[in-house]
Write a protein that binds this DNA or RNA. Structure first.
Lengths: 240, 240
DNA sequence: TTGCTTTTTTGGTCATACCAAACGAAACCA
DNA sequence: TGGTTTCGTTTGGTATGACCAAAAAAGCAA
């Protein structure tokens, strides 16, 4: 896959690219500590002997890569990249993809696919404390049935537990990305205590299947849950 | 998930951000056709009534988002974003993640997880022509056993077919991202016709399980295949 | 028409200047 | 003394203008 954020195979001759690499290295080595502000642009100028134009371009590139977090009039903050940053970097493009025909469906199907595998694996490998955590999330979800806003949060939290079971830091990041990208469409879904109760029971089915170590039942329950949910949101889109 | 490439919730007041949105809109509407070069910077200046500083910053931002492809001294090319672009945007960060301890392992485990689910689903839902395509890829793989370079290509192609079966355009993009990210570490793996033959048989096992509609066998075969492969590459890393 | 040479265009970089917001320290008030 | 206000300084955002080198276009020669 071509890396378009740092183009030109034949030795990127842009001064900014060189600066980006140098700053990247300093971040990687901890020379520029995580959470600390980047040196002022005018300092970087003399540090690296380049013009402010180049410095600003490099900082912008770093920001787009998630290595620094730059707010309008503030010093950029150094951010040691995490898995969330990787997915956040895709954020801009994903916005366009979701706007395209079938974009939401494609992404949602991907989520269903991923999560179905997740519960299957959970049913096989979840530890006791994982199942306990799932139970706690389920109870919280049940308690929130009357309050749709709270139910939405506990709903997400319940699914989040599923992503934590494999103990792979990539997974929770994927979950956060899914929810962040789908949330804008999701909030349009009509909600009510009755609907919440139905969804809670779906969650309960998933939980019990995992607790009972039944991968097929877990996968089936999750598919039923998410496919049903899709029927409720598809109405918020124009084309099928 | 915070979108750090377009920071500052309270109405991004940067002129460049505004320009980015305007150009994004023109790309989305097709006003700026896919594959066509972006207007010269000096034209954009008068088009939008901003300075060249802002224009260049906006173009850089678009490039990092994958909406334009800019090579050093060439006019940026407009690129209607696809799923590949989304993953390519994460490319820069992923490079750092892979360099971190356990980074490759985490990503590779994610791939195994994903692909295991893939073959399971393939065993259940693959159509006849899917299976035929898989067979063709398998045959090509077998024919390439003596040539390690060709075997590597056909190996990837075989797995690629798996990602195409669900007919979700996100999946092939994920596959390309996986291979692109893992390739640098992968090529270090010692290769030989003997090893190739073993891997071919693993592929053959996967194919037969899918053809025989046996999800469990397919998943088991794939896990065996990829886990064995991991043992061969883990040696190329320092820490376990 | 083909191929080479010369303009013109255009992106990359630098230097400078100004503004407004953020910062920081001194001055001030309670 | 402790918190608040004030004001000069720092710093990022933007605008100009200029120069270079490479690319593209135009012109010219074979």
């Amino acid at each position: 896959m071509p890396d378009q954020s740092a183009p030109s195979r034949p030795g990127s001759q842009r001064a900014a690219d060189s600066l980006v690499r140098q700053i990247e290295a300093r971040i990687a080595t901890g020379d520029l500590a995580d959470g600390a502000p980047l040196p002022p642009e005018r300092d970087l100028i003399e540090m690296f002997g380049v013009s402010r134009t180049v410095v600003r371009e490099a900082v912008a590139a770093l920001a787009s890569r998630g290595l620094v977090e730059s707010r309008p009039r503030f010093r950029p903050i150094v951010r040691r990249p995490g898995y969330d940053a990787a997915l956040a970097a895709a954020d801009g493009v994903v916005g366009h993809l979701l706007a395209q025909s079938g974009g939401v469906k494609n992404l949602y199907d991907t989520r269903i696919f991923f999560e179905a595998s997740l519960v299957r694996q959970a049913a096989r490998q979840a530890r006791k404390d994982d199942i306990e955590a799932l139970k706690r999330a389920l109870d919280a979800n049940e308690a929130a049935i009357p309050d749709s806003a709270a139910f939405y949060r506990t709903d997400i939290a319940f699914h989040a537990v599923l992503y934590e079971i494999p103990k792979n830091p990539v997974f929770p990041a994927i979950h956060r990305a899914f929810t962040a990208w789908l949330a804008p469409h999701w909030v349009k879904m009509p909600r009510s205590p009755e609907r919440n109760r139905v969804n809670f029971h779906r969650h309960s089915d998933i939980y019990h299947a995992i607790r009972d170590r039944d991968p097929d039942a877990a996968e089936a329950a999750l598919n039923a849950h998410l496919n049903a949910a899709w029927e409720y949101v598809r109405g918020t889109f124009e084309a099928i």
